[in-house]
Amino acid sequence: MNIDSIKNGIVIDHIAAGNGMRLYQLLGLDALSCSVAIIKNVPSRKMGKKDIIKIDSKIELDLDVIGYVDPGATINIIQDNLLVEKRTVPMPEQLTNVIRCKNPRCITSTEQDLDHIFKLTDKEHKIYRCIYCETKAN
């Protein structure tokens, strides 16, 4: 399967298979007018299978989202057909308005203007909790 290489843009590689679509949604890539490709279940020597997202434009990415969904993903910045930057993003200590608290007893369920803030409370098990009610993010 071939997807055209991009001249100026971003390739998010080494996404664990299955995380690509979630990353696409949380990064809000559906709102972009440029070409965006999600390639799922690409054979990978290291990972077995992986997902890749190619964005045909140099946009500002919310790195916290990538670190939260898949800290193993690599971000490749392409400029004039050349790879000019390659990096990974660590799990962020805090997430603001990336995910929403689903606890109906949480103050965020009634106060609409509040930011939904989650803190990383257990790095080993990748557990984030709402700062208000301490409910675990799913």
């Binding site: 949480c106 103050i107 369920s109 009634t110 106060e111 700062i131 208000y132």
Partner: peptide, 22 residues
């Protein structure tokens, strides 16, 4: 609602005591 006193503490200019949140 759980967390309401934490929200209050961010907006009050006097000490807040949580007397029970959910």
């Amino acid at each position: 609602k759980e967390g309401a006193p934490l929200v209050a503490s961010a907006h009050a200019t006097v000490p807040i005591i949580n007397a029970g949140d959910g």
